[in-house]
């Protein structure tokens, strides 16, 4: 836990640089927000809140450290109250630090080889079975084929029936997941990333979604979705300790049933509550999680849910 607390302080420092990014991006957001509205109810946009967050940013520009601190508290308060839908995409990018991460042309270059593979790549779900029978395939190549096969299986299983995930939407989702797998081969593709990527694509343009996804998986969830999933296991053990401390009765009951806390809560964490909570709640959890810069919100949400029972 000590490390996690330390991380929180670090992220508070990082936040200040994020706020300056935020300042730049908020202007753009008013333009791009309109295009995002078609995915969501436009009536969720609260114009007063929009103005408010604009003010906060204007002030941040010319303040000393002390004032920044109180403004940061105010911002935190606003984030906890829920981001306005029209600004959510831009603010998430700002929280994750997309501006600082972004390297021009990188996303395109990750997908460049896809052009050559396009013919074979398209019918991949069928072709991949033939590929595996050849013993001399390079391991890197076969790892990528494995990712591609899994991505292909999961495309129709990502928010099935959602109007935005038509052929065009799925192609974007495929590119995004493949680009990430190439960007970070030690993680590659892990189920659950399809839901994150799908969600991000609903809120922002494709390339921005890539950098946001990369920020979330590489930083917030470093070591979480890799082959060993070691950080995920660590989190579950930490959560179990917390449950024992806070809800001893529940912990004893689960012991009696022979059920480990992680069996229930593991999928909650791995999916960052997508498909676990109603959408409105999922978005609110993500708001705070991305703002905080660490995974503390996962624990808070899980403990709050367990308290219900």
């Amino acid at each position: 836990m000590g490390l996690r607390v330390e991380k929180k302080y670090l992220s508070a420092g990082r936040l200040q640089s994020k706020e300056s990014t935020h300042l730049v991006t908020v202007e753009e957001s008013k333009v791009s927000a309109d295009s995002d509205d078609e995915f969501y109810d436009a009536d969720k946009v609260d114009p007063s809140q929009e103005v408010q967050s604009g003010d906060v940013n204007a002030e941040i520009g010319n303040t000393n450290q002390e004032e920044t601190y109180s403004l940061k508290e105010e911002l935190e308060c606003l984030v906890h109250g829920g981001l306005p839908m029209a600004l959510r995409g831009e603010l998430w990018q700002a929280f994750v630090g997309v501006g600082a991460r972004r390297v021009e042309g990188y996303y395109g270059s990750l997908l460049a080889s896809e052009g050559e593979l396009e013919d074979g790549g398209c019918s991949d779900s069928l072709a991949s079975e033939g590929v595996d029978e050849r013993p001399e395939v390079l391991s890197a190549f076969s790892a990528e084929e494995k990712c591609k096969g899994q991505i292909e299986k999961d495309l129709p299983r990502t928010f099935p029936g959602h109007p935005a995930l038509d052929d065009v939407g799925r192609n974007a989702l495929r590119r995004l997941l493949l680009a990430y797998a190439r960007h970070n081969p030690t993680v590659g593709y892990c189920q659950a990333m399809n839901f994150f990527a799908g969600l991000l694509l609903l809120l922002m343009p494709e390339e921005n979604a890539f950098w946001t996804l990369a920020g979330i998986i590489d930083d917030y969830f470093d070591g979480y979705f890799s082959e060993e999933m070691i950080e995920s296991q660590v989190d579950q053990l930490v959560l179990e300790e917390l449950v024992r401390e806070k809800f001893p009765k529940l912990a004893n009951h689960l012991d009696y049933l022979g059920v480990e806390v992680a069996w229930v809560t593991g999928p909650w964490f791995l999916s960052i509550f997508t498909n676990v909570l109603p959408w409105e709640s999922v978005l609110r959890v993500w708001d705070v999680l991305l703002f905080d810069g660490n995974r503390v919100m996962l624990f808070r949400t899980a403990l709050a849910l367990l308290e219900f029972y």
Partner: peptide
């Protein structure tokens, strides 16, 4: 349903 979501972890 042909609209199942991919299972994450276990259920």
């Amino acid at each position: 349903s042909n609209q199942y979501k991919a299972t994450i972890g276990a259920d």
